[in-house]
Nucleic acid binder design. Structure first.
Length: 259
DNA sequence: ATGTCTCAGGGACTGAGA
């Protein structure tokens, strides 16, 4: 089974690329972030025609998340417990039935804008709520996968120029501590389970010709509960969509699970 | 490199967010 996550930066603009990518990679489950679509604008028919059932939670202009699945899926939540939030940043679903069923959570963690701003404080509060939620989820659903744009580069090796990014948003110590606490509830960073090429990233700034120079960050992650981590055979970043005309600023990341 | 992309409001551009 192939699980994937992709921040598409507008599903309206990116739909043709998403359909092309689904046909090429044939993932079983896909978590999308930054759909930027109100719920009644979600392109469910086009995605169903491509063989995917979908659940989504969106809003006008900003944010918005969705889960696509080849198999039947059911929405479990579109908010974190005990965290009132107008911003549509999470959706969870159960996929499959019986002993091999999995629970998938799609997250779009706040960007945080800059260290010390209100948006940064919101990001840290949001991450604390996420940690509490995941801890609770793992108790009832150990076969858990949490995919998305975390807007955190966990370590210096996830940054093209660590000194330039030192203590800046996406790389600051409190954000990295919050990420470690997510792992601490019993999750593995799938990308870290395998030997990695140096300078493997999932996001490159549009502004600085960042992709061509590989000035990127690894901020999109697939976290797996222990059971799924044991079944994980590979985790790769697909650079091809970032080479397209009018690409998203993010590339998809994919994990291959046994069976 | 206040470097680009996307969206909304409003009908050309500006501002927000990333």
């Amino acid at each position: 089974m192939k699980l994937a996550s992709w921040n598409v930066n507008s599903l309206k603009v990116r739909l043709p690329q998403v359909l092309e990518w689904l046909a090429r990679q044939n993932p079983d489950v896909v978590c999308l972030q930054e759909t930027k679509l109100e719920n009644d604008k979600f392109p469910a028919l086009e995605l169903e025609a491509a063989g995917y059932r979908c659940v989504w939670s969106g809003q006008k202009t900003y944010n918005g998340v969705a889960i696509l699945s080849r198999r039947a899926l059911a929405t479990l939540a579109t908010e974190m417990p005990a965290f009132a939030d107008e911003q549509k940043r999470v959706i969870s679903a159960s996929i499959g039935e019986g002993a091999d069923a999995i629970r998938v959570i799609c997250v779009y963690v706040p960007n945080g804008q800059a260290v010390g701003t209100d948006k940064y404080e919101y990001k840290l509060r949001w991450l604390a709520a996420l940690r509490a939620w995941l801890e609770q989820e793992l108790r009832s659903a150990p076969r858990l996968a949490v995919l998305g744009d975390y807007n955190i580069a966990p370590a210096d090796e996830d940054v093209h120029d660590p000194e330039a990014w030192r203590d800046r948003v996406l790389c600051s110590v409190p954000e990295r501590e919050a990420f470690k606490k997510l792992l601490g509830v019993g999750l593995k960073d799938a990308f870290r389970l395998f030997a990695r090429e140096e300078k493997s990233f999932t996001w490159w700034d549009y502004r600085t010709n960042g992709f061509k120079r590989n000035f990127g960050l690894r901020i999109d992650h697939i976290l797996l509960g222990q059971g799924l981590a044991t079944e994980c055979r590979a985790c790769v970043i697909d650079l091809e969509p970032r080479r397209a005309e009018r690409p998203s600023d993010h590339a998809p990341i994919m994990a291959e699970l046994e069976a």
